[in-house]
Amino acid sequence: MTDQIIFYALALLLIFAGSMVITVRNPVHAALFLVLAFFTSAAIWLLLEAEFLAIALVLVYVGAVMVLFLFVMMMLDINLAPLREGFARYLPVGGLVALLMMFAMGLVVGPRYFGSERFPVPARHAADYSNTKELGSVLYTDYVYPFEIAAAILLVAIVAAIALTLRRRPHIKAQKPQLQVAVRREDRIRLVKMTSEKKGSP
């Protein structure tokens, strides 16, 4: 009973946040509503005893991805007027695509495959059940090869993204912190021993 009340409250909040993301005018506000949407879906996952996924969602998407997103969005002064230009002209095409997508999703996500009779209510686990441990043990035994392959692909993607955006400009003058940190006293100061000069001499 309490579970259901919490679920419906969270679901309503999630739908509200999701619809605000696409309707508010200010892009920063939209990003903040997206954060709210991520957060609420994490809470719904917690209700489903999937605490690892929920915390990972908050950690990765809310804690890192959206921060960088906001970072960029606040730096760019996005002018909304040109973005909204021709809304009426593109509306029929956009609407058609949206309807097609809804139809395609309805085919797959409908009651035929995800109906409640196909998925019985899962049994509640005991308090010492660790979702993280279960996920880990499956991920590193049964699915170890797909997991490793995905990791390798992601690594290649990171290297490629960095290699594509890295510009080496050899002629600019910039400080090199690693050289500055490595400087020793002997490189900069030379102590010279000399005898004191006579008083009164010019």
Binding site: E51, V58, D128, S130
Partner: peptide, 13 residues
Amino acid sequence: NAGLLYILALTSL
């Protein structure tokens, strides 16, 4: 159970 993850998630918020 996931106390350490919880700490990581919250400090990132």
